[in-house]
């Protein structure tokens, strides 16, 4: 069974690096992008199982990226974890027009990001099957 693929989008290189490492060590395939536009392009091309994105980014914000993913039938069902340095929750209308499943505020814990990714795309099950095999 193919390993699940996660797209990590953040303009802070340290953040994409640490999230990639954590999820990569847990057995996921990771692709990264530095801004919303690049993220959208990669998502449409690679069709990842999960997208983890920052909210404030140059060229295209995290919410805009998620809205565009939702509009395209190929990516409409991809769940999204949003990381934000803003001290407030996202507006309900933004949540309604996107497939954002979880919002984590910075500073975040890579451990919790991994747990949430496991919850959303059932990697635990996959690992157990692979380990058993």
């Amino acid at each position: 069974m193919a390993r699940k693929k996660i797209l990590v989008v953040d303009d802070e290189a340290h953040i994409t690096h640490v999230v990639s490492l954590k999820l990569g060590n847990a057995g996921y395939d990771i692709i990264t992008a530095n801004d919303g536009e690049e993220g959208l392009e990669l998502a449409l091309h690679e069709l990842p199982d999960l997208v983890i994105t920052d909210l404030q980014m140059p060229y295209m914000s995290g919410v805009e990226l998620c809205a565009r993913l939702r509009e395209d039938p190929k990516t409409a069902q991809i769940p999204v974890i949003m990381l934000t340095a803003r001290g407030y929750a996202l507006a309900q209308e933004d949540l309604d027009r996107t497939n954002i499943k979880s919002v984590m505020s910075k500073p975040f814990s890579p451990r919790q990001v991994l747990e949430m990714a496991n919850d959303l795309i059932g990697h635990d099950e996959q690992c157990i099957i692979e380990e058993a095999a």
Partner: peptide, 26 residues
């Protein structure tokens, strides 16, 4: 205050994440 705390969150976020990675022996 709001902007300052927002701007401080980004580097703090990196520090926090990498420290946790070291603790978790990642």
């Amino acid at each position: 205050v709001s902007q300052a705390s927002h701007e401080l969150r980004t580097p703090l976020s990196s520090i926090n994440a990498y420290v946790e990675m070291l603790i978790d022996s990642e």
